[in-house]
Amino acid sequence: MKNDDTSLLRRLRSWVEGEDEEHQELPPIVNMEELEPAPRPKEHRSLWHLQDKSRIPVEYWVMAVLVAVTLSASLLYTSLGMPPFDDPNVPTMNEVPQRYVEQCVEETGALNTVAGMILDYRAFDTFGESTVLFAATVSIVFLMRQEEKRPSSRKKKRRARPAPAPSGDVFSGPYTDSVFRGTARLLIPFIMLFGIYVVVNGHLSPGGGFSGGAILGGGLILCAMVVGQERMRRVLGLDRFTKITAFCLLAYAAMKGYSFYTGANHVGWEVPKGTPGNLLSAGFILPLNICVGVIVAGTIFSFYLLFSQEERD
């Protein structure tokens, strides 16, 4: 390791890497306050600072500044010629949104036009979006797992890991702060309930799979902070989350494949739309919303698990 790393970088490193450092001169950081404040070497803050080191050609910086200034100026100029704000006759108010608003209840059974749009008219795009989420999770798992595979890091970690930090590290073990724990315990059921409400009522009211899934994911993260990641992982580990997410994606694909197939071939086995306004209505939109919600919640929680320390075993 280089010696001129700043203390900030050391902290960041011990945060992202866990205790298994290859160099032994750094103690495992449990409490940030215990670290002696190391003198901070000079960082380069600006490009002018870098220039006198003259290691990166100055032309690069000149070009970067030029490109940034040119792009910004042209964007500012163009924005003055855009269609006016708050005008009912802007070009985007054409027959497409009109069709969505006027025919949505009839054709999809959903009261929420946005839900009807993204989960019925444009369901294929939303499938691609969920796939982007899943692909991001999978690639992050891949990137992080590769790091773990380095030999020599595993055994050290087993030994070096201290008992759960007394005050709770930034991202690891359960928080012991009683105010936080009490408030979180009070709030978690309501957060979860609200998330489920937002997901399930996606076709009737504002919300839907994406926003409700984000609420559920946040609730799960709070839950993991209270009970500790070890216990949380026993119930909802990363592997299980990946399986659930993949299952939901497949269920989404199956449902939309069914409606595309039957719809395009005029088979006629349509899913009943029900009465618009009821919870059980709007055909496939409710199960699709649930699928998307589970995917989003799983993705957000897996991001948390992956980026926090204790994932590396």
Partner: peptide, 28 residues
């Protein structure tokens, strides 16, 4: 107009996943 709302929804999701992906790359 409901179309921009749907577009923003899409944008938020893609932005979150790309941020996470870039952070993982940075960590590597």
């Amino acid at each position: 107009n409901p179309v921009p709302s749907g577009l923003v929804l899409t944008g938020i999701v893609v932005s979150v996943s790309m941020t996470a992906f870039f952070l993982a790359l940075t960590q590597r």
